[in-house]
Simulated scan of single mutants.
Amino acid sequence: MSAATEAFLAMLAAERGAAANTLAAYRRDLAQAEEAVGDLASADRDAVASLAGEWADLAPASVARKASSLRQFFGFAIDEGWRQDDPSGALPAPRSRRPLPKVLGHEAIAALFARAEDEAASGEPKAVRLLALIELLYGSGLRASELVSLPISAVPRDAPFLTVTGKGGATRMVPVGGRALEAVGRWLAVRPQTPPSRYLFPSGKVGHLSRVRLFQLLKALAGRAGLDPAAISPHVLRHAFATHLLEGGADLRVLQTLLGHADISTTQIYTHVDSARLVALVNSRHPLATRATSD
Rank of each mutant, 00 (worst) to 15 (best):
V155P: 13
A144C: 11
A127S: 15
P196L: 12
W187A: 02
I152N: 03
L181I: 04
A121S: 12
L136Y: 03
P196G: 09
G178F: 02
G177S: 10
A144V: 12
E119L: 08
R198C: 05
V164E: 13
A132C: 03
P151I: 15
V148N: 06
A127G: 07
F161C: 06
V190Q: 04
R143D: 09
T194M: 05
V148M: 06
L181G: 14
L147F: 12
R179W: 01
I134P: 05
K126W: 07
A170C: 08
L142G: 06
L200N: 03
R186D: 03
T165R: 09
A127C: 07
V164W: 14
A120K: 02
I134N: 06
I152M: 12
L136T: 02
T194F: 03
E119D: 15
G169W: 13
R143F: 10
R172L: 12
V176Y: 01
E124G: 00
L150Q: 08
I152R: 15
A144G: 09
W187K: 04
A183L: 03
V164Q: 10
L142C: 04
G169F: 11
L133M: 06
A183I: 01
V174L: 09
K167Q: 13
P175H: 07
A180G: 13
Q193M: 13
R157G: 04
S145R: 08
A121K: 06
R198N: 08
P160G: 09
S140F: 04
L150A: 05
L181W: 03
V128Y: 02
S197M: 12
V155R: 11
G166I: 13
S153A: 12
E146Q: 08
T171A: 10
E117L: 06
P151N: 11
G168C: 13
S197V: 09
L200Y: 04
V164I: 13
E117T: 10
R179T: 01
A127E: 15
F161S: 04
L133S: 00
L131I: 00
T165K: 08
P156V: 05
D118F: 01
V128S: 02
P192N: 14
P125G: 08
A132H: 00
T163P: 04
V148Q: 07
G168H: 12
E117C: 06
V164P: 09
L137F: 04
S122C: 07
L130D: 15
L188Q: 10
A127Y: 03
A127F: 07
R198H: 13
G177T: 05
E119P: 04
L162T: 06
G166R: 06
R172N: 12
E119W: 03
L131N: 00
G168I: 15
G168D: 15
G177D: 05
S145K: 08
G185H: 01
R198Q: 15
E117Y: 06
A120W: 01
G141H: 07
G169H: 12
A170H: 14
Y199C: 02
A154M: 08
K167S: 11
A183P: 05
G185M: 00
R186N: 12
S145P: 05
W187D: 02
T165V: 14
T163V: 15
D158M: 05
S145N: 10
